[in-house]
Design a protein around this nucleic acid. Structure first.
Length: 574
DNA sequence: GCCGTTTTCGGCCCGACTGTTTTCAGTCG
């Protein structure tokens, strides 16, 4: 099994952690962290680039040294440097860094002064009261360390975007009740629409800082106040989600919004541009010397460094700065561009609403068409239909389509791709459908080679249109199955097939970086809620958010087409 | 360790809060 990009990134992250504990040059540490990030968001398998003898030092942030180290990891599965460092200090020190309040300096002191190597060692020392006498430590720190260890055992988890959205709604209306408040915006990874968020950053402009902080930490969902100040307060909610409140004056709103929206890597890149122009950017504005030259809006901030506005979803330092410089930023797709949903269920399989109910709900959303895609026989647990049942079901879709005005219903199904790559319905039934959505629901453990071949074989079927939830992952619950997405994308481009962006909050599949890769390969995407009831039709905003993170424009997705155009595209592909 | 329409050497983003400090280091985002 070839070395994956994530493993390379993991090794670089460990090297960075350990170098930092050793007190190495901070810029060298940053180089490793930066390289880890670049490798992680790279839509190409490093082992293939190495095989093809491509010049890795052309990658941003990768020079001759790191290129050689990537090659070493890909070829040998390990890195001599890491083993070398491991002979100097225990690798287990990395786990100590995960504890809040412990950074590289303190971890180093713990190791050097007390011989601590693991969290277990640390817990014993803290209970014995041996931490408080170390320079820079005290009783309070000792207690905090113990508390952190206890929490660590519970394990931390990122929060799904949609759950964060709920918290944002609650807190926003709570804070708005304070008459001094002017504006409230949730920034951070939530605003960038990442599939999960680590914490929430809420930005507030108001007349008096102190009062709003009091109100904030007093919310009934707050379990713990981590810190509280005039401009910044941090709490942990009962759900475990950390929320930061930032209070800034009106004139700084744009600068603060830009700053706290991130990503960190994007901000670093923007500030680098500012430095070159003799400017300084912080959360209060853009400054030349002591003179504030911008900061009221985000547009002003970007303009100050000579860039057009960059949409939050693009701010990941994945080429957006360069694109902005050349005025080549994509015109990102918007929710208003969507004219239909390409994959929803009904009571005919495991949905909870009838065809009619789904159709009327879609019409209320302003859609002009809707694809009804219920399960087939192989997915028995979900009430999958065999050929006869599916035929009857298709007739019912036709009847509903004739009866309900103002929306077009597409005959479809979520057809199982069987282990041999064949489709789970006879060709004659597939040929009756407007759009054939295909998916894997079993045989997740096939080898990468076999899984990929299975999908390519399915794509060879003349009726195949869309590959639904292409990697099968469930965030935090199930890893994606082994699959060579680069080959799948190339094959889809060749055959004129489409890849789905599934909006179910746990799926969000394809992910942003693969959306971008598909777009670059000329493959169109099919946004779909996979809705199992009427309310879930509104998950479309999640698919759109993901699509925007993947640089997709209206022209890159099927959902922006009118029914007549969609029909032409589908028959050309089928 | 990377990078270069000011540089192949000398830079490399910035501020708030906490705790242990008597003016600041460490951590965090």
């Amino acid at each position: 099994m070839p070395v994956q990009n994530a493993e390379v990134a993991g090794i670089f992250e460990r090297v960075a952690d350990l170098l930092e504990i050793q007190g190495a040059n901070p810029f060298r540490v940053r180089a490793y962290r930066n390289a880890a990030q670049v490798v992680r968001s790279l839509p190409h398998a490093l082992h293939e680039l190495v095989e093809r003898e491509e010049d890795l030092s052309k990658l941003p942030g990768i020079g001759r040294d790191l290129a050689a180290k990537i090659e070493e990891i890909v070829r040998t599965g390990s890195l001599a440097l890491l083993e070398e460092i491991g002979r100097e200090i225990p690798l287990s020190l990395i786990e100590l860094l995960a504890l809040p309040g412990l950074g590289p300096k303190r971890v180093r002191a713990l190791h050097e002064e007390l011989g601590i190597r693991t969290i277990r060692d640390l817990e014993r020392a803290a209970r014995a009261g041996r931490l408080r006498d170390l320079p820079g430590f005290g009783e309070k720190t000792e207690r905090a360390v113990l508390a952190a260890i206890e929490k660590h055992a519970v394990g931390e988890r990122r929060t799904l975007w949609i759950e964060a959205e709920d918290v944002v709604r609650t807190l926003t209306s709570f804070l708005e009740a304070d008459p001094g408040v002017k504006r409230i915006t949730a920034a951070g990874s939530f605003r960038r629409k990442r599939e999960t968020v680590g914490d929430l950053d809420i930005l507030v402009t108001c007349r008096r800082g102190a009062k709003i902080a009091d109100r904030f930490v007093g919310h009934e969902d707050v379990a713990e106040v981590v810190s509280k100040g005039e401009t910044r307060s941090t709490v942990i909610l009962r759900s475990g989600l950390q929320v930061d409140l930032r209070v800034v004056p009106q004139v700084s709103y744009g600068a603060a919004l830009q700053y706290f929206t991130g990503s960190k890597a994007h901000n670093v890149a923007v500030r680098r541009l500012a430095v070159k122009k003799g400017l300084k950017i912080n959360e209060y504005g853009v400054f030349r010397g002591k003179q504030r030259v911008a900061g009221r809006t985000e547009q002003e901030v970007y303009a100050a460094v000579g860039l057009p506005f960059i949409e939050p979803e693009l701010r990941e330092d994945r080429g957006e700065i360069e694109a902005a410089r050349r005025n080549r930023l994509p015109h990102l797709i918007r929710v208003e561009d969507i004219r239909g949903d390409l994959h929803v269920h009904t009571k005919a399989s495991d949905g909870h609403a009838t065809i009619e109910e789904m159709a009327l709900a879609a019409r209320r959303l302003g859609y002009s068409w809707l694809a009804i895609s219920d399960h087939t026989r192989a997915t028995r647990v979900a009430g999958g239909m065999d050929a006869r049942a599916m035929r009857r079901h298709l007739r019912r879709i036709e009847e509903a389509d004739a009866r309900i005005k103002g929306i077009r219903l597409l005959k479809s199904a979520e057809v199982d791709i069987l282990e041999d790559g064949s489709l789970d319905l006879p060709d004659a039934v597939l040929e009756e459908m407007d759009i054939v959505v295909c998916a894997i629901h079993s045989g997740f453990r096939l080898s990468r080679e076999k899984q990929t071949e299975r999908i390519l074989r399915a794509m060879d079927h003349p009726c195949f249109h869309v590959l639904a939830h292409p990697t099968g992952r469930l965030i935090g619950r199930r890893e994606p199955y082994e699959i060579d997405l680069e080959r799948v994308i190339a094959a889809a481009a060749e055959r004129g097939c489409f890849l789905e962006v599934n909006a179910q909050p746990l799926r969000m599949d394809l992910t942003d970086i693969w959306c971008k890769a598909a777009r670059e390969a000329g493959v169109k995407l099919a946004l779909a809620t996979d809705a199992h009831d009427v309310a879930q039709l509104e998950l479309m905003r999640l698919a759109v958010g993901n699509a925007r993170r993947g640089w997709l424009e209206a022209g890159d997705v099927l959902n922006t087409l009118s029914w007549s155009k969609l029909k032409r595209v589908l028959s050309a592909s089928g």
